[in-house]
């Protein structure tokens, strides 16, 4: 089915909240999901897999530590260690580095890196096993995001000032598989609160009688 960019964002955000992501994480992942969809990549399908993976529904404590100024990540989750490592790279400045034992959901993480790079005018460089050449995010073409699928094993990520203006991906409609959309919506529904009668009467947002 065809969905709008904002539908993807809102549904993804709520689905992440239902998976017990913190508010800011849910928003960042939802933005990345929507951006991936608009960029022609299957952001909703990636998110669907991510949220189905129970390993990623752990508590917010991060599995990482600093070692000689380098951030070492043992267990990588895009919404947790992923977001934290981007913040850390941005704070540490040019030449800062992180090392990830194994990158999971690399396309979602690439979406986060792209948006962060665009927002902070920085470029992230990923070097890792399985890659013939480093991947730069953002880059002059969005295809670099898809190449992240090839990453396996250890990854080193650096940050530097950006030397060009990354292409704008306009918000728009994209195609999502019905089953994926249904699963994300079902999750999103879990953020809604069943009403009590008291709430219905006292918390109502509009009048009950409308004949004038």
């Amino acid at each position: 089915m065809q969905v709008s960019a904002n539908e993807v964002y809102q549904t993804a955000r709520k689905a992440c909240l239902a998976a017990e992501y913190l508010q800011d994480r849910a928003e960042d992942i939802a933005l990345a999901t929507s951006w991936l969809q608009c960029a022609g990549m299957k952001g909703c399908a990636v998110l669907d897999s991510l949220l189905a993976d129970t390993k990623d529904k752990q508590d917010a404590q991060l599995c990482l530590h600093l070692e000689a100024g380098v951030l070492q990540i043992s267990h990588f989750r895009p919404a947790f260690e992923g977001v934290a490592s981007i913040d850390w790279l941005l704070a540490a400045g040019d030449g800062a580095e992180i090392r990830v034992a194994s990158l999971s959901y690399p396309v979602m993480f690439a979406g986060l890196l792209w948006l962060a790079g665009q927002s902070y005018k920085k470029q992230f460089t990923l070097m890792g096993e399985g890659l013939k050449t480093p991947i730069n995010l953002p880059d002059e073409a969005v295809e670099s995001v898809a190449i992240c699928q090839q990453i396996s094993g250890k990854v080193v990520i650096e940050v530097n000032d950006i030397g060009f203006v990354p292409p704008v991906v306009p918000a728009g409609h994209s195609e999502v598989a019905d089953a994926v959309w249904a699963r994300l919506n079902a999750l999103a529904m879990q953020t809604y609160v069943p009403e009590t009668e008291a709430s219905r009467l006292s918390g109502a947002g509009a009048g009950l009688v409308d004949d004038d």
Partner: peptide, 22 residues
């Protein structure tokens, strides 16, 4: 909170009604 029945924002009473965790 967002009401499951109405899909619109509502206000609940934290110490009297369920749902504050959402």
């Amino acid at each position: 909170y967002v009401s499951a029945a109405k899909l619109e924002p509502r206000l609940g009473l934290r110490h009297e009604e369920p749902g504050a965790e959402l």
